[in-house]
């Protein structure tokens, strides 16, 4: 007669002793490294590919909406900005097929950005904030630097590519939180690198145009002053480097000169005329109109 029995079963047969948490951490690190590598490959790949995309593709891409940006009446502010941008661009070694067009937006938030096709949009809020032509030239040449490096199309293209790849790989799963965040932080790192490069271009242009970078310095100092009570977001989630770092870059530059004179802005930039009676009001001290001054300066510097 067989003996019927149920001997106790050892615990380790069906359950492994390896720590699930340790494995989770190890796999998460591998996932993060993979996502960072993916973003880096896509970004650097875009930067290599983009010089092969002719600029006139971008221009025709932007043509549809850029025509609607400006009103019908000619604006003296816009013409002044356009002339200033063209003069700065002449000192920045832009390729011949990159036209720069400046538009003014009525928004009261200070902002300026460059988009496809060489279009730069400056808000009225920014025009009210700057207090010298040098500061405005810093902003404009920074945006022209972005266009020169083809930053709009590189950033937009790689952003779309990264989103698509991560969505295909991880979709809406729980671990998409890890992959999307690491992808985002890497993209922001590249964005900050683009901003620093554009800053360098702007400082070079300012040095060639005015001989010094004082206007840029006063502009950033003013930004620091205005926002010194606000809580600055940590740098790793910002698209731009922190303002103190940008200021330090300027102050350690070779053309740094705190006492160089700044060129004032014309009046109509701050308060766009309600009527078109006097398209080129002069400032009260009888100084020549800005356009005449620019023409003269263009002739002097070639």
């Amino acid at each position: 007669m067989p003996r019927y029995e149920n001997p106790p079963i050892p615990e380790e047969i069906n359950v492994s002793k390896t720590s699930a948490f340790g494995e989770f951490v190890k796999l998460s690190i591998i996932l993060i490294v993979f996502c960072v590598a993916l973003v880096v490959i896509i970004f650097v790949g875009m930067r290599y590919l983009v010089p092969h995309i002719p600029f006139h593709y971008e221009v025709s891409l932007a043509e549809n909406w850029s025509k609607k940006l400006d009103g019908d009446a000619p604006s003296p502010s816009r013409e002044y900005l356009q002339k200033l941008a063209e003069n700065l661009a002449a000192h920045m070694a832009l390729p011949a097929d990159m036209p720069i067009t400046v538009h003014i937006s009525a928004s009261s938030t200070p902002n300026a950005f460059a988009t496809f096709g060489g279009h730069i949009i400056v808000t009225q809020g920014l025009l009210d904030l700057v207090d010298s032509e040098n500061a405005l030239a810093m902003v404009l040449s920074h945006e022209i630097g972005h266009i020169k490096h083809r930053d709009p199309i590189v950033a937009a293209g790689s952003g779309v590519a990264v989103s698509i790849v991560l969505a295909i790989l991880f979709g809406n799963s729980d671990i998409a939180a890890i992959s999307n965040t690491s992808g985002l932080l890497t993209q922001l790192n590249f964005s900050r690198a683009q901003e620093s490069a554009a800053d360098q271009e702007a400082l070079k242009a300012l040095t060639q145009y005015y001989g010094h970078t004082n206007g840029a310095e006063t502009f950033f100092k003013k930004m620091l002053e205005t926002h010194k009570d606000d809580q600055a977001p940590p740098e790793f989630i910002s698209t731009h480097p922190n303002t103190p770092e940008r200021l330090a870059c300027i102050e350690t530059g070779s053309a740094h000169d705190s006492h160089a004179p700044l060129t004032p802005l014309p009046d109509f930039v701050k308060h766009p005329p309600a009527s078109s009676k006097a398209p080129y009001p002069t400032s009260g001290r009888g100084i020549r109109t800005p356009l005449a001054r620019l023409r003269e300066r263009g002739g002097r510097r070639g």
Binding site: A20, F21, E23, F24, L27, S28, L31, S173, D174, I175
Partner: peptide, 14 residues
């Protein structure tokens, strides 16, 4: 629990 699901989701990739 949520941790088991997340850890399994990661492990399923490899």
């Amino acid at each position: 629990d949520y941790f088991k699901t997340a850890a399994a989701g990661l492990k399923k990739i490899i």
